[in-house]
Design a protein around this nucleic acid. Structure first.
Lengths: 331, 331
DNA sequence: ATGAAAGCGCTAACAT
DNA sequence: ATGTTAGCGCTTTCAT
């Protein structure tokens, strides 16, 4: 049988309350007794049951992480940063890939509620706001990372997406591009990025063109489709700003297929600065999110009620690689 | 307060035992009572506590997944496949990125034991065999995926690594390459791949050369270093077989840096067939593991004692893309 | 400083 | 078919 607190108590000749106290460092234990208990705990290889402890109202030291897909490198990076912080704190992270499906979202959340997780970190766009409010009513902490629901008071860690869109576009503008297209996806963060893009254009008196703007899903395939569509335009753009790296990679594929030579005939920049950026040819210029810091921060905010419903904004940074270059009117 | 089984019992006018029975579908409940209980459960939005249930000896419906690094696409894929199966079964998966560090491995395992997880799935090379045996002594199920510890009787799902090494090499041989180098990493699976590689060479009377063989860590950087070393040889290889895609990508970078034109001057093939293969230029030929099937299988074997300590072997397949081509003696 | 005992929410005999 | 009750391993008053 598994050793319990009773075994330790008996062996050490003390009560279970005392053992409990030494486990939790709850004062009122004489130094001698403490040592004796510690020793027998070691002897018996006793390890306290989190399950039993949780039943008495203590934490489960487990949080749920909802992301669209763990096999997407961007989210895998987020997961890793959160997991690392969890490991430091002795808290386990349960992964939940929702594929942005409301059904999966619900299933995962209700299961994790039954498991009494200490909180939820959401990196996916939340489909079911009702569910989310239900969770918050139950006083289960919730925090968002790399996405926001502006309509809700909720703990959030994001980058300044407006600025992200702005600096990316500025970069292209500074390379003399004016025919700058944007491929975005449906997400709140993207709306801000789009606004930043438009702001940058307007500041240079460049009128955003309707046909240079595509909204689609965040996959390489869709990015390629969008790229194809853009580059087959009568007057194709000389630069494409993709709202995430996957879309950018798709756009690059499209460009290669159509015989464009990057960055001479076309500049492409991405967003997120994932590991993928260094794999593309040419290497992808991208707007970077400080994922590691963000993961740590969101975890800490989740657990510290001082931060409840606060919003933390990190600053994006442009990482210039080889996929963006000076505009040359070669046509 | 949270609704408990008592609230439901009282509201429905039955005993908690009856409620428990309808929750668990434990026969002996009249249809009328069952309906009544079901209804009040819904009314009260009752959701049974897994924690309390676990304390009475039932499962926690949680497993731990130990991998080297969730941000490595190969392992993210494994995680996803396991998570998917878990979701179907109502079982949660806790991610544990060990970085192949014994210290982390220990910390994760002992924490998860305290949490009474139902089992462990290990995708990382296990550093501490003692720890592993300790887990098995505690009768906690353990299963390995994509790696093996031949010295231990333990549930395992792998591919036939020997065959993987063999078919990759055969492919290169069939393209008339004879100067075939191999970049491997330290892992049991790689030993088998190496054996397969040697076997294929021997069958064609090609003598494996010492200088064409490098063992290193599984990162792009190391792959690049290895590639540089190989290609700077007096008589550089005409083909490189990397034991995983990361190494292959590094090798491709090295080749590009040195001005090699793939696949004309050099063929490179990888192993694992990760998403990265379609991102490289040229697209990477790679030996594929049926990860999705393997994830499902390992989960099922973990939970079904019929399979305890059995070893399941899946078959690798070669996915030919653009990075491997006919040998041309252009030098 | 330490111990006795109640209770957390549930399961599983055992009764009825 | 349904109810009673004794745990599961731990935390936490409340006594001593």
């Amino acid at each position: 049988m598994k050793t319990t607190i009773y075994d330790v108590a008996k062996e050490a000749g003390v009560s279970i309350a005392t053992v409990s106290n030494v486990i939790n460092n709850n004062g009122r234990v004489g130094e001698k007794t403490r040592q004796k208990v510690l020793k027998t705990m070691a002897q018996l290889e006793y390890s306290p049951s989190v399950v039993a402890s949780a039943l008495t109202g203590k934490k489960t030291n487990t949080v749920g992480l909802l992301i669209p897909d763990i096999s997407n490198p961007f989210f895998a990076d987020i997961a890793r940063s959160i997991e690392d912080r969890g490991n430091e704190l002795g808290i386990s992270v349960i992964i939940c890939s929702t594929d942005n499906l409301e059904e999966k979202e619900k299933k995962y959340i209700s299961l994790l509620i039954r498991k009494s997780v200490d909180g939820f970190i959401l990196a996916s766009g939340v489909k079911s706001l009702d569910l989310l409010e239900e969770v918050m009513e139950k006083k289960i902490p919730v925090a968002l990372i790399a996405n926001d629901i502006p309509s809700l008071p909720i703990t959030t860690v994001t980058i300044d997406d407006f600025k992200g869109g702005y600096i990316g576009t500025k970069h292209l503008l500074s390379l003399n591009h004016t025919k700058i297209a944007m491929i975005a996806e449906h997400a709140w963060s993207n709306i801000q990025r789009i606004n930043g893009y438009k702001q940058a254009l307007l500041e240079q008196n460049v009128e955003p063109r309707e046909e240079y703007f595509i909204k689609t899903e965040a996959t390489i395939e869709r990015g390629k489709e969008a790229g194809l569509q853009l580059l087959n335009l009568e007057e194709p753009p000389s630069a494409i700003f993709a709202c995430n790296d996957l879309l950018a990679i798709g756009a690059i594929e499209a460009a290669r297929e159509l015989g464009f030579d990057l960055p001479n005939d076309l500049s492409v920049i991405g967003f997120d600065n994932t590991v993928l950026c260094r794999l593309t040819v040419p290497k992808l210029t991208s707007v970077s999110q400080p994922i590691h810091d963000m993961g740590k921060k969101v975890f800490d905010m989740l657990l510290d009620s001082d931060f409840t419903n606060q919003k933390t904004l990190f600053m994006p940074e442009l990482v210039v690689r080889e996929s963006s270059g000076k505009y040359k009117d070669t046509v």
